[in-house]
Simulated scan of single mutants.
Amino acid sequence: MKFFTKLSLLFTFSLFIILLMACQAEDIMKKVIGVTWIRSFEDDKEGTQAYRPETYDFPPARGREGWRFEKDETLTKQVIAPTDGYVSQRGKWNFYLKKDKAILDIILEIVQENIDKKQDEKVKKLSYEIVSASDSILFVKKLNEK
């Protein structure tokens, strides 16, 4: 009988952990979605990139890249153009938990003026771990770039 009691306790605890992780993931994405996040390189630390909401009072810089994630899993990336202006890139995002890590996968469609590029060169796949997210700052760690 003790075996079944331990087994049921283990099952209950595992279910609790899964529900807790799902709630944590939902809380993270509630903070990220619908906000335009601008790169705040002054706040980078320990191999992470920092982003702040566009309403933040940033110090002067030559340019800052940014992201905006929408509920429908689309995104817009603001990048610095060769002419020092900005160019928007569109893409899709996917968020999931993997081994207690919040992972954000991004597929960007890169629109080039040179249409001689191959189709696969017009797509950029990125993967980030969301290290922490609050209403005032987002820390991510780049996992790969293909």
Rank of each mutant, 00 (worst) to 15 (best):
D135W: 06
D105A: 13
K125N: 13
E46R: 10
D84V: 05
Y51D: 00
A61I: 07
E109P: 03
I17M: 11
V111S: 10
A22Y: 09
K6A: 10
I110A: 03
G66M: 05
L19V: 09
Y56R: 04
F139G: 00
K98D: 13
R39L: 02
Q78A: 03
A102D: 12
W37H: 05
F95W: 12
I17R: 10
V32G: 00
F58N: 00
T74N: 14
G66A: 04
I38F: 01
K117I: 06
T74L: 03
I80S: 06
P53E: 02
A61N: 09
D44K: 07
K124G: 02
D43P: 04
R39P: 03
E113Y: 10
D116V: 07
I106D: 02
K141Y: 04
F4N: 15
L9K: 14
K125R: 15
L126D: 00
N94E: 14
G85I: 06
G85E: 11
I107N: 07
D100V: 07
L97G: 04
R68Q: 12
G85Y: 01
Y86D: 08
K77I: 02
E70M: 07
E42I: 09
K92H: 11
L138Y: 01
I106Y: 09
M1H: 14
K118I: 05
D43K: 13
K101N: 15
G66V: 08
Q24C: 05
K92W: 03
M21N: 14
V87N: 09
K146Q: 15
K92I: 00
K141M: 08
L19S: 14
E42G: 00
M29T: 14
G34V: 04
I106F: 09
Y56P: 00
I33L: 09
G63H: 06
P60K: 13
E54T: 03
K31C: 01
L143R: 15
L15R: 12
E54C: 05
G47E: 07
L7N: 00
K2L: 12
S134D: 07
I115Y: 07
V32D: 04
A133Q: 02
G66S: 03
R64G: 04
L104G: 03
Y96F: 15
Y51H: 04
S132D: 13
E145V: 11
L143T: 01
I110E: 12
Q119D: 14
K124N: 08
R64T: 08
G66N: 06
F58D: 02
E65F: 07
K71D: 11
V35P: 01
F13H: 09
E26L: 03
I110T: 10
T83P: 02
I137R: 06
D100E: 12
A22N: 14
L104S: 07
Y86G: 07
T48E: 06
S88F: 10
K98M: 10
L126H: 02
P60D: 12
L20D: 11
